[in-house]
Amino acid sequence: MDTYKLILNGKTLKGETTTEAVDAATAEKVFKHAANEHGVHGHWTYDPETKTFTVTE
């Protein structure tokens, strides 16, 4: 398992979190669910070198 990071750049919610996942696709599902639960919808990017997802509203 690897550690993946999410950076939230929402209009009303900003922050960072991490998750352990077997691959980037699994981490993305976890992060998108969490972002949706917090009402953050926007443009997603992924940097494979740093294993970091970013969502920007």
Score class of each variant (00 low, 15 high):
residue 23 D to H: 03
residue 45 T to Q: 10
residue 41 H to W: 10
residue 19 T to N: 03
residue 4 Y to P: 01
residue 24 A to S: 08
residue 34 A to K: 13
residue 27 A to W: 01
residue 52 T to F: 03
residue 49 E to M: 12
residue 56 T to F: 07
residue 27 A to E: 00
residue 57 E to K: 03
residue 22 V to P: 15
residue 4 Y to H: 02
residue 45 T to E: 12
residue 34 A to F: 15
residue 44 W to L: 03
residue 52 T to M: 03
residue 1 M to L: 14
residue 30 V to Q: 09
residue 46 Y to N: 00
residue 53 F to Y: 06
residue 10 G to H: 05
residue 42 G to V: 02
residue 25 A to Q: 12
residue 22 V to Y: 13
residue 14 K to W: 13
residue 43 H to D: 13
residue 7 I to P: 01
residue 54 T to Y: 07
residue 12 T to K: 09
residue 50 T to M: 06
residue 17 T to Q: 14
residue 12 T to R: 05
residue 12 T to H: 15
residue 41 H to M: 10
residue 24 A to H: 09
residue 24 A to W: 13
residue 30 V to C: 07
residue 48 P to L: 06
residue 22 V to G: 09
residue 36 N to W: 14
residue 3 T to S: 07
residue 33 H to P: 03
residue 49 E to S: 13
residue 1 M to V: 11
residue 56 T to Y: 08
residue 8 L to W: 14
residue 50 T to P: 02
residue 18 T to N: 06
residue 25 A to T: 09
residue 53 F to P: 00
residue 55 V to N: 02
residue 55 V to W: 03
residue 35 A to F: 05
residue 12 T to I: 12
residue 42 G to W: 08
residue 3 T to I: 13
residue 40 V to P: 02
residue 57 E to C: 06
residue 9 N to V: 13
residue 55 V to F: 05
residue 26 T to Q: 12
residue 10 G to E: 03
residue 40 V to L: 10
residue 36 N to D: 12
residue 9 N to G: 04
residue 7 I to M: 05
residue 15 G to H: 15
residue 32 K to P: 00
residue 51 K to E: 01
residue 6 L to W: 04
residue 51 K to A: 03
residue 55 V to A: 03
residue 16 E to Y: 12
residue 49 E to P: 08
residue 25 A to R: 09
residue 47 D to S: 07
residue 12 T to V: 12
residue 29 K to M: 13
residue 22 V to F: 12
residue 33 H to F: 10
residue 39 G to C: 06
residue 27 A to P: 00
residue 12 T to M: 09
residue 39 G to T: 04
residue 7 I to R: 05
residue 42 G to H: 02
residue 2 D to I: 13
residue 51 K to Y: 07
residue 14 K to H: 11
residue 28 E to P: 00
residue 25 A to H: 10
residue 32 K to G: 04
residue 50 T to E: 06
residue 2 D to P: 07
residue 8 L to Q: 02
residue 21 A to E: 04
residue 56 T to L: 05
residue 40 V to Y: 06
residue 23 D to V: 02
residue 51 K to C: 04
residue 31 F to A: 01
residue 40 V to C: 04
residue 56 T to G: 04
residue 35 A to N: 03
residue 36 N to K: 14
residue 15 G to D: 08
residue 27 A to L: 01
residue 46 Y to M: 01
residue 37 E to P: 03
residue 47 D to N: 10
residue 37 E to L: 13
residue 44 W to A: 01
residue 18 T to E: 08
residue 27 A to C: 02
residue 51 K to D: 01
residue 2 D to N: 13
residue 6 L to H: 01
residue 12 T to W: 15
residue 25 A to K: 10
residue 39 G to S: 06
residue 24 A to P: 10
residue 23 D to Y: 03
residue 45 T to R: 07
residue 30 V to E: 09
residue 55 V to L: 09
residue 57 E to G: 04
residue 1 M to Y: 12
residue 51 K to I: 02
residue 32 K to T: 06
residue 19 T to P: 00
residue 10 G to P: 03
residue 35 A to S: 05
residue 55 V to H: 02
residue 34 A to V: 15
residue 6 L to C: 10
residue 20 E to L: 14
residue 6 L to N: 01
residue 30 V to W: 11
residue 16 E to D: 05
residue 48 P to M: 07
residue 9 N to W: 11
residue 47 D to F: 05
residue 2 D to E: 14
residue 55 V to E: 01
residue 40 V to F: 12
residue 43 H to T: 15
residue 20 E to F: 12
residue 37 E to M: 14
residue 30 V to R: 09
residue 26 T to P: 01
residue 43 H to E: 15
residue 1 M to D: 06
residue 37 E to C: 11
residue 53 F to T: 00
residue 12 T to C: 14
residue 51 K to M: 07
residue 39 G to I: 08
residue 57 E to Y: 06
residue 7 I to F: 06
residue 13 L to D: 06
residue 21 A to C: 08
residue 3 T to R: 08
residue 6 L to T: 02
residue 21 A to F: 04
residue 56 T to M: 06
residue 34 A to Y: 15
residue 7 I to T: 04
residue 51 K to F: 08
residue 47 D to E: 09
residue 46 Y to D: 00
residue 20 E to A: 10
residue 14 K to V: 11
residue 19 T to Y: 12
residue 12 T to N: 14
residue 23 D to E: 03
residue 33 H to Q: 15
residue 3 T to L: 11
residue 11 K to T: 14
residue 54 T to W: 06
residue 7 I to V: 10
residue 33 H to V: 14
residue 26 T to L: 05
residue 23 D to T: 04
residue 44 W to M: 04
residue 52 T to W: 02
residue 41 H to G: 06
residue 13 L to G: 08
residue 52 T to V: 07
residue 14 K to D: 05
residue 41 H to D: 12
residue 37 E to Q: 13
residue 41 H to I: 13
residue 24 A to G: 04
residue 28 E to K: 08
residue 2 D to R: 09
residue 8 L to H: 03
residue 11 K to N: 14
residue 20 E to P: 06
residue 17 T to R: 13
residue 2 D to W: 12
residue 10 G to Q: 04
residue 4 Y to A: 01
residue 45 T to N: 09
residue 48 P to V: 08
residue 6 L to S: 01
residue 51 K to S: 03
residue 38 H to V: 15
residue 8 L to K: 01
residue 13 L to W: 15
residue 31 F to M: 02
residue 5 K to D: 02
residue 14 K to I: 12
residue 52 T to D: 00
residue 16 E to Q: 08
residue 23 D to I: 02
residue 14 K to E: 06
residue 5 K to S: 06
residue 36 N to F: 13
residue 4 Y to M: 01
residue 4 Y to N: 01
residue 44 W to F: 04
residue 18 T to A: 07
residue 57 E to L: 05
residue 11 K to W: 14
residue 35 A to E: 02
residue 8 L to A: 04
residue 39 G to D: 06
residue 40 V to I: 14
residue 1 M to P: 08
residue 24 A to K: 12
residue 49 E to F: 12
residue 57 E to I: 06
residue 48 P to N: 07
residue 50 T to Q: 06
residue 57 E to W: 07
residue 13 L to V: 15
residue 47 D to Y: 05
residue 27 A to K: 00
residue 25 A to I: 11
residue 43 H to G: 06
residue 52 T to C: 06
residue 31 F to N: 00
residue 43 H to Y: 14
residue 45 T to K: 08
residue 5 K to P: 02
residue 37 E to D: 09
residue 19 T to C: 12
residue 7 I to Y: 06
residue 30 V to K: 08
residue 22 V to H: 11
residue 11 K to H: 14
residue 5 K to V: 10
residue 33 H to N: 11
residue 19 T to D: 02
residue 51 K to W: 04
residue 43 H to S: 13
residue 5 K to M: 07
residue 2 D to L: 11
residue 48 P to I: 08
residue 1 M to R: 10
residue 7 I to G: 01
residue 30 V to F: 14
residue 30 V to I: 15
residue 36 N to P: 03
residue 46 Y to G: 00
residue 47 D to L: 04
